[in-house]
Design a protein around this nucleic acid. Sequence first.
DNA 1: TTGTTTTTGCAATTGAGTTGCAAAAAAGTC
DNA 2: GACTTTTTTGCAACTCAATTGCAAAAACAA
Lengths: 140, 140
Amino acid sequence: MTHMNDEHILRNAGIRITAVRLMIWKQIRHSLTGVFSLSDLEEAMPTVDRSTLFRTLTLLSEGHLLHTVDDGSGSQKYCLCHHDDTRQCKGHVHLSCRICHRTYCLTDTTIPPVPLPQGFQVEETEYIVKGICARCAAKG
Amino acid sequence: MTHMNDEHILRNAGIRITAVRLMIWKQIRHSLTGVFSLSDLEEAMPTVDRSTLFRTLTLLSEGHLLHTVDDGSGSQKYCLCHHDDTRQCKGHVHLSCRICHRTYCLTDTTIPPVPLPQGFQVEETEYIVKGICARCAAKG
DNA sequence: TTGTTTTTGCAATTGAGTTGCAAAAAAGTC
DNA sequence: GACTTTTTTGCAACTCAATTGCAAAAACAA
């Protein structure tokens, strides 16, 4: 966790500041919890155009302020990094709920390695547990 | 592996036989290797309509003759089961190549378990290693 | 056969992601 | 500050895979 303010964080990631970008970043950092999709963000910020949101998410990901999560739902998800830089926080397990379609980060559960065939160059590993989350299971 | 013929396999899975379904099943069983997408199947069988292929894939999956693979590419993949029933062969690791977009099944590499939070009901687990496959790495 | 149900092919729709382009905003220059 | 250049934004349009409604064709049943 950092004590930098939002402007500093963006600038530090090499992202030029604009009113819209700052607004989007603040929304993500302060209001969206856990893993979210472009649609979630769109819903939270109906005044900003989808393409702008999309481009900003891409920018934030490239700046390593967000990381992308493939939860197997077919739609790209994003996740705020708990470190200053996503490169320090990759490789943890995600839970994906079939009922509420929420995806949860198990930030502290790192992905156990497996033996891989010779010659395959690993870039990224996803470990997704699909099922029913505690909240939905409780409801019935 | 089974010594049943194709008709028997389908009937056994509770799928009614039609000429088209049999043709699709034979194509998958005898000609498509590894993990494939609807588009791959479409390409291999241009005379059959995409919606029919799609509905048949769904049917085969529901009958546990195929299993679905989320390789994070955004498009659904399918994989022929090496057992008679997909329920016996879930939970192995997949490799996904960023260059050729092929997905490989590591049939014998089971997914190592991780500790999960109380209350989450697991239904399925995906372990996907993304990167560059040996073939593409060799090319350059 | 004839009538009923299921399956298929076509066309259309959905939904997420993505792009081209002109207007608006920001940055740079005098 | 005024003017020019560059970047960003919003709109509309497009792509691509998945999915559905519906009428015709095929399979099944009596």
